[in-house]
Computed example of a mutant assay.
Amino acid sequence: MAMALALAVALAVASLHAEAVWLDVPQSGTKCVSEEIQSNVVVLADYSIMFESHPYSHPTIAVKVTSPYGNTLHHSANATVGQFAFTTAEAGNYLACFWIDSAEKGSGVSVNLDWKIGIATKDWDAIAKKEKIEGVELELRKLEVAVQAIHQNLIYLKERLVIYSTSLWSIFCS
């Protein structure tokens, strides 16, 4: 149980940070990324084609972001850069898919995706200016928000564990 709790805390902390990823989108086909997100969480993302591998051509991509129930949250075509933002309505896997939609497909493209979730979306510079805090007080505020997010993630994981173990119990007992 202690190991499971430590793993849950590690996963919760890992989900508090934002990371940019590069996706290699093939000339034909789709590249998707997904993230399991709780309900009522802010999501912000920026994406752009990396043109270093295409100095003379300018391919474009299409992007579609869907909720766990298949609702389209963002759709864009003929894009070289873009962004999306939403607050999750339900918990589950949110999916962002990218594909080349221009005639200039070449050998595929690289897409930079900067996907931020939850507290990683906060503009701490603006908060610091508005509330006139800095230094240790600002860092304590960030830690307080992180602890609240970890607590919410642990509650969510505990609920999922109860549902999962109940499902397993009903399978083994039937």
Rank of each mutant, 00 (worst) to 15 (best):
15 S>H: 04
15 S>A: 10
16 L>G: 08
16 L>M: 15
18 A>W: 15
19 E>I: 15
19 E>N: 15
20 A>Y: 15
20 A>M: 13
20 A>P: 11
21 V>L: 15
21 V>K: 15
23 L>N: 01
26 P>F: 04
27 Q>C: 04
27 Q>I: 07
28 S>I: 12
28 S>F: 15
28 S>L: 12
29 G>P: 06
31 K>T: 10
31 K>Y: 02
31 K>S: 01
32 C>M: 10
34 S>A: 02
34 S>H: 06
36 E>R: 09
37 I>C: 05
37 I>P: 00
38 Q>S: 09
38 Q>W: 09
39 S>Q: 14
39 S>H: 13
43 V>L: 07
44 L>A: 11
44 L>R: 04
45 A>V: 09
46 D>N: 14
48 S>W: 03
49 I>S: 06
50 M>N: 00
51 F>G: 07
52 E>G: 01
52 E>D: 05
53 S>I: 01
54 H>S: 09
55 P>D: 04
55 P>K: 01
56 Y>N: 01
56 Y>R: 02
57 S>H: 03
57 S>D: 08
58 H>L: 11
59 P>E: 08
60 T>H: 03
61 I>W: 02
63 V>D: 02
65 V>A: 08
66 T>Q: 10
66 T>C: 11
67 S>I: 02
67 S>G: 09
68 P>E: 11
69 Y>H: 15
70 G>H: 12
70 G>V: 05
71 N>A: 07
72 T>L: 03
73 L>C: 12
73 L>S: 11
73 L>E: 08
74 H>D: 13
74 H>T: 06
74 H>A: 14
75 H>F: 07
78 N>P: 05
79 A>L: 12
79 A>I: 11
82 G>S: 13
82 G>H: 06
83 Q>T: 11
84 F>I: 02
85 A>S: 14
86 F>R: 07
87 T>M: 14
88 T>R: 08
88 T>S: 10
89 A>F: 03
89 A>G: 13
92 G>R: 11
95 L>N: 07
96 A>G: 05
96 A>F: 00
97 C>V: 05
98 F>E: 08
99 W>Q: 01
99 W>F: 01
99 W>I: 09
99 W>A: 07
101 D>S: 05
102 S>E: 07
104 E>V: 11
106 G>N: 03
106 G>F: 02
107 S>R: 08
107 S>P: 00
108 G>L: 05
108 G>I: 03
108 G>M: 01
108 G>N: 04
110 S>R: 00
112 N>F: 12
112 N>L: 14
112 N>S: 14
112 N>W: 15
114 D>I: 14
114 D>H: 14
114 D>L: 14
114 D>F: 14
117 I>Q: 11
117 I>M: 10
117 I>K: 09
117 I>E: 04
121 T>N: 12
123 D>Y: 00
